[in-house]
């Protein structure tokens, strides 16, 4: 498992370097993983890497790139949009010659166009925002500050907003609010019921589950090698 740089396109034709965590041994089957979004990315990261270790053992390469503005990325989160994230994932897919894609939770909203694959427990953009807005109103209440979800939404759409420690710009906020669930014939839905147990994104603290990682990796390995 190594961190590898890859060129990510910027608006206007230039590019910047972004990082990806990769198990890359130049093998035939190559899975690009679009990570979960915001705080869910933290809660799902260890699980995601555990799935990658299992795929590696099964002879499958996997690549987990950063979405620009998140994780190790030096790009500014506030200027990102779903379109920019999708373009970034498409660039990573072609740079790493991915053959398949797995999107985790909200990552399904930034899945690149050209690859077949899977959406694991996809989350709607509006649900992700609703939860982060709620966390902010709760924290505000504790601090003796009354903020309504409506006020915060208006603010977010005009000036951007900080939610759960993430500075989300008006464009990304609007994109997430309007994003419809990704539905494509070449992307299969993996529901949590198929994996078993409760989704790890629900956990208050990041956690892991050997059984769930086994189940997801087995499903992917079978799907990629037929």
């Amino acid at each position: 498992m190594t961190p590898i740089g890859w060129p990510c396109p910027l608006p206007g034709g230039a590019s910047s370097e972004e990082y990806a965590l990769a198990f890359d041994k130049g093998r035939q089957h190559r899975l690009l993983i679009v990570p979960a979004l915001f705080d869910e990315a933290n809660r799902m990261r260890r699980f995601t890497v555990e799935v990658m270790r299992r795929l590696d053992a099964a002879g499958i390469d996997s690549i987990l790139p950063d979405l620009p503005g998140t994780n190790e990325s030096l790009a500014v989160l506030e200027t990102q949009s779903l379109g920019a994230w999708q373009a970034a994932m498409a660039a990573a897919a072609s740079h790493f010659r991915a053959t398949h894609v797995l999107a985790v939770r909200g990552g399904s909203l930034a899945v690149p166009d050209m690859l077949p694959g899977w959406l694991y427990a996809p989350a709607k953009g509006s649900s992700i925002l609703r939860q982060m807005l709620r966390a902010r109103t709760l924290a505000g209440k504790e601090a003796g500050r009354e903020e309504s979800r409506e006020e915060l939404t208006t603010l977010a759409l005009s000036e951007g907003i900080e939610l759960a420690g993430y500075r989300i710009g008006p464009q990304l906020f609007a994109d997430l609010e309007e994003a419809l669930a990704t539905v494509r014939d070449d992307l299969s839905l993996i529901e949590q019921g198929t994996i078993g147990g409760a989704g790890l994104w629900l956990r208050a603290e990041p956690s892991e589950s050997r059984e769930q990682a086994d189940a997801l990796a087995a499903l992917l390995a079978i799907g990629m090698q037929v």
Binding site: D39, S127, R130, Q131, M132, R134, A135, R136, T137, L138, A139, K141, E142, S148, R149, A164, L202, A204, E205
Partner: peptide, 27 residues
């Protein structure tokens, strides 16, 4: 471990599984 983000998650999960709607004012 039950910080505001976790409570937000808890309330959202309650909405989904108990089939209820929780307003900000309820909390």
């Amino acid at each position: 471990e039950l910080d505001s983000m976790a409570v937000a998650g808890l309330l959202t999960e309650m909405e989904d599984r108990l089939d209820i709607v929780i307003e900000d004012d309820d909390i």
